[in-house]
Design a protein around this nucleic acid. Structure first.
Length: 298
DNA sequence: CGCCAGGCTTAGG
DNA sequence: CCTAAGCATGGC
C-alpha cells in the first residue's frame, strides 16, 4: 500500500463519469492552466488562497493535490465539496441516457460524449459575470475580455514562477473605474451589469438561496438584476446550479446545434425550442451541454 | 464592406 | 404587448 500525502485525496465518481471528456481543458480559459494530464487551478477557501491540481485516475476517479500552501484537514474537506459541485458528481446520467437514446436530436450526441458531466465553473458571481461578458459577442473575444479582467483585478497565487488567478470578488469589481472597463473592452452597459451583479451578491444572493427556489422564482430573482435577462438567468441556473429545468432557448449555439441535428435551413427560433423544455425535463441542462459540445463550444 | 457572435435595456408605438 | 436602436468588438 502506497502511503499518500495528507495534501492529496481521491474523489470517487459515479459510474457514468468520464474524467477526460468532462474536464474542461479550454486553453483560452484564464482561471485554470492545462499542463498535460494535470489541470492547475486556484480557489479561495475561507480567507485562504489555495492552489491545487487535479487529474484522472485509471478508474475515472479524480485525484486532487494541494500544491500550496500546506493546509488543514478542514480545507481538504471543503475542497471535496467544491469538486462534488464542480463536476456535478451527484448527477446520475443513466436516466438521461435512457431518455436521450430514444430522442432523434439527442441520440447521437449522448453516444459521442458519453461520460460528460457539467464541469468547469466555480462560483455564482463568476458565472453571472461570464454570461454577461459573453452576451452578444463571439466566445473567443469573450475569453479575451475575461482574461484582461482577471489578470488585472483578480488576486493570484504564485507557484514555480507562474501566477494562478482567482476571479475578482464583488468588491474588487465594484472598485473598477469606467475607463478601466473601457480599456478591457467592456461596453458601458456591460460594465454596469457586472457591477449590478456584484451589488446583488453583496446584498445576499447566494447559490444556496437560489437552490431553495422554484424555477420561476429563481428566474424572477435573477432577472430582477439589471443586465440579467432570460438567457443569462437560464445559463446561470444550468451551468452553476446544475438545474435540469433550466433551458436557454434564446441561446444561438443551442439553436445552431438543433438546426444541424434536424437538418433545418435556418436556426429555430426560441419559441420553437420551448416544447423541448418539457420533453427533456429534468435533463434540459444535460441536453444543452451535450448539444453545445457537439459544436465544440463547451 | 456586411453580418453574425452563447443578449439586454430603454424608448416609443 | 411588440419592435427598433444602441452597445463595442472580432472573425469570416
Amino acid at each position: 500500500m502506497v502511503k499518500t500525502s495528507t495534501n492529496s485525496f481521491i474523489i470517487r465518481t459515479p459510474e457514468t463519469f468520464n474524467y477526460d471528456i468532462s474536464r474542461n481543458d479550454a486553453e483560452k480559459e484564464v482561471l485554470h492552466a492545462v499542463r498535460g494530464d494535470y489541470i492547475y487551478k486556484a480557489y479561495r477557501i475561507g480567507r485562504k488562497k489555495v492552489l491545487i491540481r487535479h487529474s484522472g485516475t485509471p478508474k475515472d476517479n479524480i485525484k486532487v493535490e494541494v500544491l500550496k500552501p500546506s493546509v488543514q484537514k478542514e480545507v481538504l474537506d471543503e475542497l471535496r465539496i467544491i469538486f462534488q459541485r464542480e463536476f456535478d458528481l451527484g448527477a446520475d446520467l443513466k436516466a438521461f441516457y435512457k431518455m436521450a437514446a430514444k430522442d432523434p436530436i439527442l441520440n447521437s450526441v449522448v453516444k459521442s460524449y458519453k461520460g460528460l458531466h457539467l464541469a468547469g465553473i466555480s462560483g455564482l458571481f463568476e458565472t453571472l459575470c461570464w454570461a454577461i461578458i459573453g452576451q452578444q459577442i463571439n466566445l473567443a473575444f469573450a475569453h479575451d475580455v475575461k482574461r484582461a479582467l482577471v489578470e488585472r483585478f483578480g488576486d493570484s497565487i504564485s507557484y514555480e514562477g507562474e501566477k494562478f488567478f482567482l476571479f475578482p470578488s464583488p468588491d474588487q469589481m465594484l472598485s473598477i473605474s469606467e475607463s478601466d472597463f473601457k480599456e478591457m473592452k467592456f461596453s458601458r452597459q456591460k460594465a454596469r451589469y457586472v457591477k449590478e451583479v456584484a451589488l446583488a451578491i453583496n446584498e445576499g444572493l447566494t447559490l444556496s438561496s437560489l437552490e431553495k427556489l422554484s424555477y420561476e422564482e429563481a428566474m424572477n430573482t435573477l432577472t430582477k438584476i439589471v443586465g440579467v435577462g432570460t438567457w443569462t438567468a437560464n445559463y446561470t441556473l444550468l451551468r452553476c446550479c446544475a438545474r435540469g429545468d433550466a433551458f436557454p432557448v434564446k441561446d444561438v449555439a443551442l439553436q445552431k446545434a438543433i438546426q444541424i441535428k434536424l437538418g433545418l435551413d435556418a436556426k429555430p427560433k426560441s419559441e420553437a425550442l420551448l416544447p423541448y423544455q418539457e420533453k427533456w425535463a429534468p435533463y434540459c441542462h444535460y441536453a444543452t451541454l451535450y448539444l453545445w459540445r457537439s459544436l465544440s463550444e463547451v
